[in-house]
Amino acid sequence: MRKLIGVLALVMLFAACKSNTTKVLPIYGNRSAETKTVNGQQITDTVYQTVPAFKFVNQYGDSVGSKNLKNDIYVADFFFTSCPSICPVMQRNMLNVYNAFKDTADVKIISFTIDPKHDTTAVLKKYADKLGVSGNSWWFLNGDKDKVYDLATKSYLVGVTQDSTAAGGYVHQGYFVLIDKQQRIRGSYDGTDPKQVDQLIADIKTLKAEPVSK
């Protein structure tokens, strides 16, 4: 009996500890250590991979980019409007994210087209209208193809390539990438899987509750 009480107490202690820790999302990507001198003291700090500055054109014809996203958490994905394969299911799932956060000022969705030649501003606007997207919480961005592909593969870690043998002419991964206010990658989710997208919605809430460092 005494043993049992002991075990019980241990379990309860453990449970108590667990409930006190708030969940923090991991930080993904490459990292390096940087040593700098502050007030005559040597300080070593971790430098995380961040998304570099970019500037493209959204569906309203406005020139927007990383400067406009400085104080935002955002979800990035890569698509093209004439995509016959995974895009419809991705956008159907992304609509859930949109509906959950469209009235939240500091959460945005950025969809980069990987077919900028076809997906002009007018095409993107029409697409957004038909999808039922209005306002500025979900941007569809058209930009220089090489820059977009570079951003996708190096910064958001999403594979995209042009391939004439593939349906629609492009191959791309359906990841939704979660970026925090310091432009760091905090999560990557399979945009074709509704369960992972539910997790993304939960993680955005976790990230919003995180105290902002710096």
Partner: peptide, 16 residues
């Protein structure tokens, strides 16, 4: 068909 037309045949708003 399901990717575009959905698991409940719901389509996708004004697109599909």
């Amino acid at each position: 068909c399901q990717n575009c037309h959905g698991d409940k045949g719901q389509g996708l708003n004004g697109l599909i």
